[in-house]
Simulated assay, not measured.
Amino acid sequence: MLKLTERLGPIAADQASDTLTLPYELRIRGRLKAESDAGRDLGLFLDRGPVLRDGEGLRAEGGEVVRIRAADEPVVTARIASGLPLARLAYHLGNRHVQLALGEDEKGGYVRFPPDHVLEELATLLGATLEHHRAPFDPEPGAYQQLGGHGHSHSHSHSHSHGHSHSQSNGHDHDHGHEHGHSHAH
């Protein structure tokens, strides 16, 4: 088994002796047994954290280099007019704390995400047209990862209060509130 232990960042295709095509859910893992596109057994032994990006190179203990490719997988591509409508779409979808891929092609700008009926409904309400298809899903890295802040992490939490009023048939009303807390690690 070829043990891949070092991240090289983006590399040209001709710098690698083999490729490894993975869906997003496997490119977030640091430890993985897989088969290369040429049929060789590979083992990933990488630091946790950064997602393996399409075009990233990995070096084996013996110096051999394998290039990562993002697999085609089910996605939804939401399209809307450029400028403020596209920014608004990206903002509201991103505010749902989900991974999004932002891009531009011959049809214009888009926001791409895995199929999710809630996100699809929101995108439609904002005026986007949706295309369900298979394509690579390579979401935007966090701002700290883009700026070279490897190893930086933070967490935050949200607390939402919801008051409820209940009216009983005996004429007695009572109110109570309850908290829902959740946290996100980034």
Rank of each mutant, 00 (worst) to 15 (best):
H186L: 13
E35F: 12
Q99L: 14
L100W: 06
H154Q: 10
H178M: 05
I11S: 01
G149E: 07
D47N: 09
L100A: 06
E35N: 08
G151Y: 05
E64F: 13
A78T: 02
R40Y: 03
G142C: 03
Q15F: 02
D41H: 09
H152N: 08
H133M: 03
P50S: 13
S161H: 15
L8S: 02
Y110E: 06
R88D: 15
Q15W: 08
S82Q: 14
D175N: 13
E131V: 06
V111P: 07
E56S: 01
V65P: 02
H162Q: 08
P74G: 05
G181M: 06
L119E: 07
D47H: 11
L22H: 01
L84W: 07
I28T: 15
R53G: 04
G148K: 00
A81W: 00
G55Y: 12
T124D: 08
M1E: 00
F113H: 06
R7W: 05
A128N: 04
H160G: 01
L32C: 04
F137L: 05
A60V: 04
Q146L: 15
G171D: 01
R40K: 12
T21N: 03
G163I: 08
E121R: 13
G171Q: 06
H164Q: 11
P10Q: 11
E56V: 10
S36L: 01
H92Q: 08
H182E: 11
R40E: 08
E140A: 10
D47F: 02
A13C: 00
R40T: 05
L26G: 07
E140K: 10
G142W: 14
K33F: 14
L84M: 05
H172T: 07
I80A: 06
H174V: 05
I11R: 03
H160T: 13
Q99M: 14
V51Y: 05
D37Q: 03
A81H: 08
L122Q: 10
H152Y: 15
P114E: 15
Q145G: 11
G163V: 09
